[in-house]
């Protein structure tokens, strides 16, 4: 897949940072507002896919390898399971929310109706891990498909 025209590249380059910032906002505020790791990860992955389509998979293949993406996805999955296993160590059961109610980071309990980023216990940590996993997984799927199609165009 070759890149598109200069107009598309410029507009994609301008809108890409906003899409990524919005996706990261949705991930970071997953325990307060609508959204979470999966939704924000999908937003960031679609922004990356926009760049991939605008600039072409040949250009993208020089910037990132599919090996790195699968590594990133494994890091997200291992982080998610690690937080869940810490629940056994500190809280007694798998997936126990052991941070909430303590003085640690994210340990607060919000007042009724108020929003405080420093709440939620293990939920923000799991949101970050799952967000990383979804970014790498969804963008990896699109990237590998684009690579395979461009390889076929070369041989044909």
């Amino acid at each position: 897949m070759n890149g598109m025209t200069k107009i598309v590249k410029t507009i994609a380059g301008i809108s890409f940072p906003f899409i990524v910032i919005y996706g990261l906002y949705v991930i970071a505020h997953g325990h307060l507002t609508p959204g979470g790791g999966f939704q924000g990860g999908a937003v960031v992955a679609s922004g990356l896919a926009l760049i991939l389509v605008a600039y072409g998979s040949k250009w993208a293949a020089t910037k990132i390898k599919e090996h790195d993406l699968s590594l990133l996805e494994s890091v997200g999955a291992i982080g998610f399971i690690t937080v869940a296993f810490f629940g056994i160590l500190f809280g007694g059961v798998f997936f126990s929310n052991f941070i909430v109610g303590t003085d640690l980071l994210f340990g607060g309990i919000p007042l009724a109706g108020a929003a405080d980023i420093n709440t939620g216990g293990t939920l923000p940590l799991m949101n970050f891990a799952v967000g990383l996993k979804v970014i790498a997984g969804l963008f990896g799927i699109v990237f590998i498909m684009a690579l395979a199609i461009s390889k076929k165009e070369e041989s044909a």
Partner: peptide
């Protein structure tokens, strides 16, 4: 009170029904 999260859906996904999310992550992987 129990999870400290204002978002009920996130608290169900990652706390009350964490095993579902584990399976979901496995499916994505």
């Amino acid at each position: 009170e129990e999870t400290g999260a204002n978002n009920g859906v996130t608290s169900v996904v990652f706390d009350y029904r964490g095993f579902d999310t584990l399976g979901e992550a496995t499916v994505l992987f």
